[in-house]
């Protein structure tokens, strides 16, 4: 191992090049992961923040809150949740999702609100201010903004209100009186979903995350290929030198360990620096860009890259193992 470290340190110009390339690839992976995590959070933040793990929806809703229409029935153990995308329109139109829970419930934000009052995500405010009113474009129901609380759903701001306001709104809007889901444990004729299943059913969530996962996968494989190609080329360049080492009796394991340790150090350093930079980015990017640094994900992708890169060392290791010292010396001991 020391042999490999000494080589890297004393030939740093050669190895810094591959380090920079590796760092950029890992960094690209972690930045994309940060964006994917940010978008994933942005897509289902309001669901994620709910203090409930079990959701009961109608079977035909396929886990989509906005497709589930349940006749409201009294229950002591479960909490109703109503979710409806609305277009608000005063001077300009703005999309948001209305979330309603009972005022006394503890599953969501504290809602000490009178009928018609709402709390909105800060991004909803724009030119509006606390105290302003906004109308539902379709029904004309008027809501009064009395405060802000963070909440996003399907990349749109969430407007939080109480069930009393939801009922009042439904009377104005017409149509059936319903809620979207019951939260909590209990027997219902409805279909049961976990929180993660509800998040994954948010429109666009799976397609979006699938795209990012594919990008990350390709980046990992491309990175590992580049790393393998580099160390393979370096091994080929060093064949006469490695032949000498084998000729004087140095074990293949000693030489191979040096090679593997070089790959390990390159990937570990690059992953560490990339994680630090991504954590820094998460702190400095504007709030408008959904970006999150998740330590577990950074570790996961670093570990995957590490494993793929180690697999990539099999080729140069095979070359090393097959190396005939006499051939490497060029047929002559010169």
């Amino acid at each position: 191992m020391q042999l490999g470290m000494k080589e890297m340190w004393r030939q740093r110009r050669r190895y810094s090049l591959i380090f920079v390339i590796t760092l950029l690839i890992v960094l690209l992976t972690t930045l994309i992961t940060g964006l994917a995590d940010g978008l994933a959070y942005d897509n289902g933040a309001s669901i994620r923040e709910l203090d409930a793990e079990t959701f009961h929806l109608t079977a035909d809703a396929d886990g989509r809150l906005t497709r589930s229409f349940i006749e409201r029935a009294p229950t002591d153990t479960m909490t109703p949740l109503a979710v409806k995308p609305l277009t608000f329109g005063n001077e300009t139109k703005q999309d948001a999702t209305l979330f309603a829970i009972p005022a006394a419930s503890s599953v969501g934000p504290t809602l000490d609100l009178a009928v018609g009052e709402v709390l909105v995500d800060p991004s909803f405010l724009g030119t509006l201010a606390v105290g302003d009113t906004v109308d539902d474009f379709a029904s004309g129901y008027r809501f009064t903004i009395v405060g802000t609380t963070e909440g996003r759903f399907s990349h749109a701001p969430v407007v939080w209100t109480t069930m009393e306001t939801w009922d009042a709104y439904q009377q104005v809007a017409g149509g059936p009186v319903y809620v979207s889901a019951w939260l909590g444990e209990g027997d219902t004729p409805l279909s049961t979903f976990t929180k993660q299943e509800i998040i994954e059913a948010v429109p666009g969530y799976s397609a979006e995350q699938g795209t990012f996962t594919m990008m990350r996968g390709f980046l990992l494989v491309i990175g590992a290929f580049i790393l393998t190609a580099f160390f393979y080329m370096v091994t080929l360049q060093k064949l006469p030198e490695l032949g000498i080492l084998k000729a004087i009796g140095i074990r293949t394991r000693t030489i191979g360990t040096a090679l593997v340790s070089q790959v390990m150090l390159t990937v570990i350093l690059a992953s560490g620096l990339a994680a630090l930079f991504t954590a820094f980015m998460a702190e400095v990017v504007p709030a408008a860009i959904p970006f999150q640094f998740d330590v577990a994900n950074a570790l996961l992708y670093s570990t995957l890259f590490f494993i793929i890169s180690l697999a990539g060392t099999l080729l140069p290791l095979y070359t090393l193992r097959r190396l005939d010292a006499a051939d490497a010396l060029g047929g002559r001991m010169k």
């Binding site: 042999l3 000494k6 080589e7 004393r10 030198e241 000498i244 080492l245 001991m333 010169k334």
Partner: peptide
Amino acid sequence: FVFQDAHLVPYL
């Protein structure tokens, strides 16, 4: 072994 061009390990 003593080789024609010494063949020392360049980074040691």
